[in-house]
Design a protein around this nucleic acid. Structure first.
Lengths: 136, 136
DNA sequence: TCCTATGATGGACTGGGTCCAGGTCAAGAA
DNA sequence: TTCTTGACCTGGACCCAGTCCATCATAGGA
């Protein structure tokens, strides 16, 4: 069983064939699919699955905190199943390929109190940009 | 004359009333308007200005490197006129208000070579999230 | 002042995403 | 096992941000 699926089961999530397929399709490392890509892959395994269900399911996974949403290109949002292991992203400005990366240090501590404007700051998302070996 | 307008003039940008109005509307600190908000403000000063022109103009400002585009909420892109002064963003998860912030250190140096996957990394954008005083 | 390339217009169009009324089914109860 | 029911799924209409394009207007150089 996929890792993501196992985590969702552990939360008492009601299991259906649609949800199982979405979770299976999305699982893995360096996976950053759009909702439409998830839908296309899901249709291969479960031809009747609807787009709305894929959107709903991804949305629920996000609210459960098991999947993170990223919008790196201003176009379609992408879904990352590694929410349980904190990481940042490295994006190629040429082809758009995305890598999970683990920078040193904690970015939160780099924001001095006088730069917090009274906010309770709880997370920091970093997007590194550059050219991948293929595009350079 | 607005700061942004002055910088654009300095680049030999052909000046029209529409471009002037867009630049004036967008100028300032902690300004992060959507294209539609820019259009609404621009219409106050120049009623015939079209949405397409606002999109085109903002797009050109971005390619000139005088304005940066951010998509913090997955909805409409926002435009930030302070591209000439590098900074990061602090976003309220409640109401969505955005602040320009200047964290300590250089995030680029925090990405170790073995985490670069052969990329030529050129920039790092950080989005801090939390609750503003009003929403906390 | 005239010319013309560059810019502006507005309306149609696209792509990503959401909504909803009605049909389906997982899983607890008996 | 069968029944029951509320949560889930479907497909199609709809919405919004953004793009495209044919045509009209104009900034700014000659």
């Amino acid at each position: 069983m996929s890792d993501l699926l196992q985590r969702l089961r552990g939360r008492g999530w009601r299991m259906t064939s649609q949800r199982r397929v979405v979770a299976e399709v999305l699982d893995g490392d360096h996976v950053h699919l759009t909702a439409d890509e998830v839908h296309a892959l899901a249709v291969d395994r479960l031809p009747e699955i609807s787009r709305a269900t894929v959107y709903n399911t991804l949305g629920e996974m996000v609210s459960l905190g098991e999947v993170t949403e990223l919008s790196t290109d201003g176009r379609a949002k992408r879904y990352d199943p590694n929410a349980h292991r904190p990481h940042q992203h490295l994006v190629c400005s040429g082809c758009g390929v995305i890598r999970d990366v683990h920078p040193a240090g904690d970015p939160l501590t780099d924001l001095p109190p006088d730069q917090r404007y009274g906010f309770t700051v709880s997370e920091a998302a970093i997007t590194y940009r550059g050219l991948c070996p293929g595009c350079a």
